[in-house]
Design a protein around this nucleic acid. Structure first.
Lengths: 221, 221
DNA sequence: CCCACCCCTACGGAAACCCGTAAGGTGGGG
DNA sequence: CCCCACCTTACGGGTTTCCGTAGGGGTGGG
């Protein structure tokens, strides 16, 4: 089994939960960090001491605090650590089971496991650690079913910007000006209207308000 | 210290965390339930056995499962248990620290404590349990600051319905029909427009889309 | 080279939305 | 009882959004 594990997770109650589970797996050398920056420091020190971590268990979102941290998300942390030590095993442990997020993250190829924090999250996490130790990859059932979803709705950067500006209270007129100013094409009023119409059709939205709300609910903006 | 505690919390990792903390507080008799309905059953059995619980630690939102549960939220559970046993101490342990939710729940008068699950949530929970045992009430620092916020934006049922219908893709024309059909007053086109204008002003929204998004972000709809 | 095709743009009319004014209704205080 | 304040509704005109049509200007295949 893994000898040395790094846990990056901000919520203390979950940290205690993970710690207990790792103890049951007979993993003795565990470091817990509640801030991404701390995790990076601990990680580098271990490398320097020639006793690197073998496994990273990592949350995705960290509540921001008074500290002005360099790294604020699990995604960034994973990217940095993998760059330093490509053979590090990584398992994501997050409440976020949205298909978009799952696919995006898994697609980076940096992950060995993805477990969502639901009722049986900790149990799944233990299973995952075992599998990953055996050289396999692991997704918890809920994550796997999300991952298999064929049609994951997504929008281009252009659409995202368009919808975001609407959500921020821009009129179509103002959006046209904004697009021209920022050299975003197409910028004409006509194209904006056409794109919105197409989006409404694609999403099955009855009004533009409806469209923007749907995009919001799907976490596309 | 409390002798008998009931924990209603769906996420297993947090349950383990809470369990460990309670053990440290030397509380031996602890029941964990991952479904509200189970909590109700355990609670009633304890009453029947004349060994009632003294403290309830309760999450607010429970991920819905395949089971068709009667009780689906912590709020409902608390209401039911307090009705059965008014002297039960109740402490909410939730990620939800939104001012609206905090005030609404605290306002029911059923609560003795409210702790948010942030970095130091478990630590705060331990403090809270001690205070409540001493007959005081307790809010974690983050919750307390949210609670103190003077101007908590809120909207009437009417406004909520109006904004929700817009978010669901109704046109103003359709909303007028809907209001007339459901005997909601005022229902005239003119009044709907006027109310929306006032809401835009109140919220400082530039467009109606902006208004609906703000309401969404503030969890008012 | 020419044509077909696609995309951006321009324009005009229809529909929806926004806004102010004024007329009717209701209810409470004098 | 009247009066006044407030709310609801009706209506007209302005603005924004919606939608179809049509005119360039590239690009690629024939």
């Amino acid at each position: 089994m893994f000898k040395k594990v790094l846990v990056a997770e901000d919520i203390d109650s979950i940290n205690v939960g993970i710690a207990t589970m790792l103890k049951d797996l007979n993993i003795k050398n565990v470091a817990h960090c509640q801030y991404c920056d701390d995790a990076l420091v601990k990680f580098k020190k271990a490398q320097y001491d020639k006793e690197p971590y073998e496994l990273l268990i990592c949350d995705l979102s960290f509540k921001k605090s008074h500290r002005k941290d360099q790294i604020t998300t699990g995604k960034e942390l994973i990217k940095m650590l993998i760059a330093e030590q490509p053979d590090l095993k990584v398992i994501v442990f997050s409440v976020d089971d949205h298909p978009k997020r799952v696919k995006e993250l898994w697609g980076t190829g940096c992950l060995n496991g993805y477990v969502d924090k639901n009722r049986w999250g900790l149990k799944n996490l233990a299973t995952g650690i075992q599998k990953i130790y055996n050289g396999e990859t692991y997704m918890s059932p809920a994550i796997e079913s999300q991952f298999k979803k064929k049609k994951v709705l997504s929008v281009s950067n252009y659409d995202n910007k368009l919808l975001s500006l609407l959500a921020d209270g821009y009129s179509q007129e103002e959006i046209e000006q904004y697009f021209k100013k920022h050299k975003i094409s197409p910028s004409s009023r006509s194209s904006i209207e056409k794109r919105l119409k197409d989006l409404r059709v694609d999403f099955g939205a009855k009004t533009t308000i409806h469209l923007v709300m749907m995009a919001k609910n799907l976490k596309l903006i």
